[in-house]
Design a binder for these strands. Structure first.
Lengths: 165, 165
DNA sequence: ATCTTTTATTTCATCGATGAAATATAAATT
DNA sequence: AATTTATATTTCATCGATGAAATAAAAGAT
């Protein structure tokens, strides 16, 4: 249906890169769909995407700790939001906030044992649905998709560094 | 960086489908990035994503018209939002609203000549950036990406029809 | 010692999206 | 004719995200 639509548009505007436009639309649709699926799975745990992401970043760090500034970068969030996110996670006892020893301007954020348990408990129930998402994908498909998405991500990064005049 | 993160998590939780989780994260990142890029390109025209999508759907229809109900489906929007979107586009003279002849409960939404001109003017400047996004993609890459995204979209549709107990 | 820079938080204001429920109108069903 | 269903709009309320600017505290530079 979308295919026909883009087909008709590209008949009127022939310079249009139709295959690429189709891919954009597909990516947007799949991205939104995935986002929805994720938020859906997070809802029962009263987490939103950025809180979850922040928690997972901490969980996956060798020492389980980071600083607000770092987390802003990794989770692509503004400082204001990161303060909020940290507030929420601290209140639930999943992370702690403390002053850094070396540089006392910095705040050390650290996942708690309860936070680790929480992650270990909430992740496994997601696995079946994740697996289902890629039903019918051969190993080769997955490698290919990964490669192409990375290339796309790279190109998009370039683009966002070059906002047109 | 994300790769290492997921790698470490999957060492602690070995049942995790790590490659699939990586693909999810990639998709989410690329999706968000694309969304941003799109909104960025739409901003100068004072359009948001759903208004643009709605306008493009109308533009791409053979007769340039549709109804609110249909548009809700195609643009995955609630009825309330579609009313708002239509309001905005009518106010700018890009579409018209009129009663349907056959079924006077329905409202006929139709793109205006000004709306068509608007689309034809705003699209071409986007093409270079779209092309840049897929720099380094062979025709085969594009076909493959399209195929895999469609498969993924299909699987996600299945999933959303099966909200777990 | 003073000024500048870095880091994080707080305050405040706004924007945008969303959606449920009530309303209006017309078609379909009985 | 009366009731039910379909379609669209309006009203209202809320939620969430966002971000700029002011503030605070500490490190670094002069």
């Amino acid at each position: 249906m979308m295919d026909e639509g883009i087909g008709r548009v590209s008949q009127i505007i022939p310079q249009m890169p139709a295959p690429e436009a189709r891919l954009c639309r597909l990516m947007l649709m799949v991205g939104a769909s995935l986002e929805e699926e994720l938020e859906f799975k997070l809802k029962p745990h009263k987490l939103n995407h950025s809180e979850f992401l922040t928690l997972m970043i901490l969980y996956s760090r060798p020492d389980g700790s980071s600083t607000p500034g770092e987390l802003c970068e990794f989770a692509t969030q503004g400082a204001t939001n990161m303060t909020r996110i940290a507030n929420a996670l601290v209140k639930r006892g999943l992370i702690t906030r403390g002053a850094s020893e070396e540089d006392r301007r910095r705040v050390l954020i650290r996942i708690t044992p309860a936070g680790r348990r929480f992650v270990q408990k909430m992740l496994p129930p997601m696995f079946p649905r994740v697996a289902t998402m890629f039903a019918g994908f051969s190993d080769n498909d997955k490698r290919n998709l990964s490669r192409l998405l990375r290339k796309l991500a790279h190109n998009l990064d370039q683009l966002s560094e070059t906002p047109p005049p």
